[in-house]
Amino acid sequence: MKPRDIMKEKSSLWIFGYGSLVWKPGFAYKRSSIGHIKGYKRRFWHGDDFYRGDKAKPGRVVTLVEDEEACTWGVAYEVTDSQIEESLQYLKMREVVFGGYITQMVEFIPKDKGQAPLLALVYIATSNNPIYLGPASDKEIAAQITVCRGNTGHNIEYLVRLAEFMRLSCPEVEDEHLFSIEAAALNIFSDCGGITPPEQKPILLGAT
């Protein structure tokens, strides 16, 4: 179902974020809820040649890959009334035009046991996308992330902020893929004595 069809049928819509949306949704919303979806795993397999990279050095950002045994934690945002169209227009530019993502409706399970599961809209980049990079080892992904930056900042910031969200909001969840890449990236920084991207102040790792 397309976002506009959803908008016509509902006065309220939930949008699930599992990447940069967890710390920077960029749209107005009524309320938010931390939780997870089942049947998908989060992977740094999608390329980014605009926000966290460029044409010469595309960055690595997360997408969702189907896996019946997996679940992915993130944040769902409820948008209502005029917020629905405004948020979808914003995300069309942020995720679809520049990011290459498609939309799906998924079941979101809130961390708060008092809140019932609900349907949420999620944006997913597939292997059909021309800037999709696909699998690589954690060390290879980390090495790529440490040297890339785009219009919204360095790729390492994206990685660290996502890892921080998981530690602070879902401390009981062990996201092996995410934390392994973070550890490999921080080792690269440590071995190099810290990296300062060109024409940018030193990155403050751990900033929120």
Rank of each mutant, 00 (worst) to 15 (best):
G74M: 07
K113D: 06
G74W: 11
V79L: 05
I102N: 09
Y123T: 05
R60E: 10
S82R: 10
G99F: 00
N129T: 11
P135V: 03
N128T: 14
D54F: 00
A125G: 15
I34P: 04
P135F: 09
T72F: 07
H36Y: 15
P117C: 05
T63A: 06
E95D: 10
A125H: 07
V96R: 06
F98Y: 13
N151Y: 07
T126E: 04
Y77N: 08
I109G: 01
M93I: 07
G134M: 07
A56C: 05
P117S: 10
D138K: 02
A136R: 14
Y123W: 13
F50S: 01
A143D: 12
S33A: 14
L91Q: 06
I84A: 02
S32T: 09
R31S: 13
F27A: 06
G134R: 12
T126K: 03
V96P: 08
R42K: 12
D54I: 00
Q115H: 14
V96Y: 05
R60A: 11
P117Q: 10
E107H: 13
G74V: 11
R52L: 02
M93Y: 14
S82H: 11
I37P: 01
A120S: 14
F27T: 07
A136N: 13
G74H: 05
L119E: 12
V65Q: 12
Y90V: 06
P117N: 11
G150N: 03
E66R: 15
K55M: 07
A120P: 13
S32M: 13
E95Q: 09
G99D: 01
F44Q: 01
E68C: 09
Y40L: 02
Q104K: 15
M105I: 15
Y101W: 07
V106D: 01
K41M: 10
P58R: 04
D67G: 13
D112F: 09
R94C: 02
R60I: 13
E85S: 08
K55S: 14
F27I: 11
E66P: 09
N129A: 10
G53S: 06
S32V: 06
Q115T: 15
F27K: 10
G74Q: 08
F50E: 01
P110Q: 07
V147A: 06
L91E: 01
P58G: 02
W45F: 15
N129H: 15
G39C: 04
T126L: 01
K111A: 12
Y123L: 04
Y132A: 05
I145N: 02
F108W: 10
K41D: 01
V65A: 06
E66A: 14
Q104F: 06
A142K: 11
V62C: 14
L118E: 04
H36K: 14
G100C: 07
A120L: 07
Y123C: 03
V61I: 15
I145C: 08
R60N: 12
Y29I: 08
K38H: 12
Y29K: 04
D54P: 00
E78R: 09
C148D: 05
Y51A: 03
D54A: 00
P117W: 10
T63E: 04
R43S: 11
P130L: 00
I84H: 00
E68K: 13
E95I: 03
N128A: 15
D54M: 01
I109H: 12
F108R: 02
Q89R: 15
K111C: 08
H46R: 13
Y40P: 05
Q104S: 08
H36N: 06
F27P: 13
V61W: 05
